[in-house]
């Protein structure tokens, strides 16, 4: 038996909204420690890694580790029915064929229960080595989201350069070229604050289309942490009370 009660159901709605355009069918791994998933997008350019810690749920029970194959598209449809103030219970019997979702209103005035049919999915787990990154950028998630969105109007590729003092977002397209540079600072305003932890300068290119999809997670966390090393996928990390959502994106490399 697996059962998890989440008092703040909105966070689960936001998580699924943040991944549904990247991955459509995924295996959730449930253990006594956590609910987790790792899934690539169809073109194998981006990877989603989600961990929700058991200890952060109001109630959590998992007698036996289990893999739950879920259609994210269909889960998103059901979660649309849950109110923003609702609590959500996730429940599955051992060797389950359905995932039961229960949405309960704040004053217990209304309860919705749905059984989502589970899928048997091939898992394509990637081994991601623990590694030290050359540069780490911590900044406002909404500011990063705005920069990516604005630069998408110029072209499809973002050139990201980080040195010890600043981070530069540069683009070059048919209409011209441009860049936005932000200096490391410890402003009280969360929008302006930028923390750099850089051992070596890095300059890399990434597809803005994917970064814009990742930035849907800015509703989960005020900050985003970008980890970069030359010629390896960048990591965007959004941390929140319940756990963390990380996105990996393969770089574009000059042939």
């Amino acid at each position: 038996m697996f059962e998890a009660l989440l008092g703040n159901g909105l966070i689960l709605k936001k998580i699924i909204e943040s991944i549904k355009e990247l991955v459509t069918e995924v295996n959730f791994e449930v253990t006594s420690e956590a609910i987790s998933l790792q899934a690539m997008d169809a073109s194998h350019v981006a990877l989603v890694v989600l961990v929700l810690r058991a200890s952060e749920f109001e109630e959590y029970r998992c007698d036996r580790p289990q893999t739950l194959g879920v259609s994210i598209t269909n889960l998103a449809k059901l979660l649309k029915i849950a109110g923003n103030d609702d609590s959500i219970i996730l429940r599955a019997e051992d060797e389950a064929h359905v995932l039961t979702l229960v949405f309960t209103g704040k004053n217990n005035e209304k309860m919705c229960e749905f059984n989502l049919n589970l899928l048997t999915l091939d898992s394509e787990h990637l081994g991601i080595p623990e590694q030290e990154y050359s540069a780490e950028v911590t900044m406002s998630s909404s500011e990063f989201s705005r920069i990516c969105r604005e630069l998408t109007q110029v072209t499809d590729t973002l050139n990201l350069s980080v040195d010890k003092e600043s981070v530069k977002f540069a683009v070059s397209g048919d209409i011209g070229t441009g860049s936005i540079t932000m200096k490391a600072n410890n402003s009280d305003k969360s929008e302006e604050k930028l923390i750099l932890n850089v051992s070596d300068t890095v300059s890399m290119a990434f597809a803005l289309r994917y970064l814009n999809l990742f930035n849907k997670a800015s509703s989960l966390s005020d900050e985003v942490v970008l980890s970069l090393s030359p010629e390896v996928p960048v990591v965007l990390k959004f941390a929140f009370d319940l756990g963390e959502l990380k996105y990996f994106l393969a770089p574009k490399i000059a042939e």
Binding site: S43, L126, A207, F248, A250, E255
Partner: peptide
């Protein structure tokens, strides 16, 4: 123009 890499260029199957 730079080429888009895929994740398997960097990470092996677990």
């Amino acid at each position: 123009k730079p080429a888009q890499m895929v994740l398997e260029n960097f990470f092996g199957k677990a």
